[in-house]
Computed example of a mutant assay.
Amino acid sequence: MRACGDVDESVSEKPKNKPAKDENSVYESVKVIIQALLIAVVIRTLLFQPFNIPSGSLIPTLLVGDYLFVSKYSYGYSRHSLPFSPPLFEGRIFSSEPERGDIAVFKLPTDNSTDYIKRVIGLPGDTVQMIDGRLHINGEMVAREPAGTYRARDAFGRTTEATRYRETLPNGVSYFIIERENDRGFWDNTELYEVPEGHFFMMGDNRDNSTDSRELRAVGYVPLENFVGRAEIIFFSLEEGASGWRVWEWPLTVRWDRLFTGIE
């Protein structure tokens, strides 16, 4: 009888310890999740933030369906470096100005909330103008060489051949652009733009299909404070119109040759 009593006592002690173990397990799980979230927030705020490309304004450099990392530290930090752009401080800290030719993400100056991505063309104090399809900076025509053709979509969604050029900025940065309307587009002849101090002039590489600083009311000059970061690397890319969640289609829809490629 005593032996049976000992067995009954040992069995009755196990349920008493179980809730404590369950509570510890839940606590540890919650702690790990909170730590992971904090690490993700720090990385996104201070180091790198992922973006995807929804439009063709930077074709042929960036394509619709590209996913890329933007370095947040490249230009220092402003309120736009934080999620939802809280007005905690003005200006930038650890500031470094964008360089001519950088592809950068910035907050649209007209609403300070929409993310835009374009190439830095004009620096503070520069003059910028398009004349017969040719880019002029500070009165000098920017070098441009023919580089074949590129298949692009026109304003009606039809596939057409666009003329491709390699353009080289005064600081030596070189990249491809396309002229869908062969130097006869609406924005191929513009007024003379004078970039204000503390601002930058941004343009897309798809010159006839880019809403950029040439449209002063839509974009205009971009304040340094509005810069989010510099585009660094394409880490994933899907064909235009493909769905990312359909992983079984990836062998056919992923642009494998674009994965982990640097951005010029």
Rank of each mutant, 00 (worst) to 15 (best):
R2F: 15
A3D: 15
G5E: 11
G5F: 08
S12K: 13
E13M: 13
A20Y: 11
D22M: 14
E23F: 14
S25R: 14
V26A: 15
Y27F: 14
Y27E: 14
V30H: 10
K31D: 10
V32P: 02
I34R: 15
Q35W: 13
A36Y: 06
L38Q: 09
A40S: 09
F48W: 10
Q49M: 08
N52W: 15
I53Q: 01
S55R: 08
G56C: 00
S57Y: 06
S57K: 04
P60F: 07
L62G: 01
F69D: 07
S74C: 03
L82Q: 03
P86H: 01
F94I: 01
P98L: 04
P98T: 04
G101M: 05
D102Q: 05
D102T: 00
I103M: 10
I103S: 04
F106M: 03
K107G: 02
D111C: 08
Y116K: 03
I117C: 11
I117Y: 11
V120L: 02
D126P: 10
D126S: 10
I131C: 01
D132N: 13
R134N: 13
H136Q: 06
I137M: 02
N138K: 08
T149Y: 10
R153N: 09
G157F: 01
R158F: 06
T159R: 07
T160Y: 00
E161T: 03
E167M: 10
T168W: 05
N171R: 04
E181R: 04
E181F: 02
D183M: 10
D183F: 14
D188V: 09
E194V: 15
V195R: 10
P196Y: 13
P196H: 12
F201D: 03
D205Y: 05
D205F: 02
N206M: 03
D208A: 04
N209L: 02
S210K: 01
T211D: 04
D212R: 03
S213K: 08
R214V: 00
E215M: 11
V219S: 02
Y221T: 07
L224N: 08
E225N: 11
N226G: 07
F227T: 06
L238A: 05
L238P: 05
S243H: 14
R246S: 12
E249C: 09
P251A: 10
L252P: 03
L252R: 15
V254T: 07
F260A: 09
F260S: 02
E264K: 14
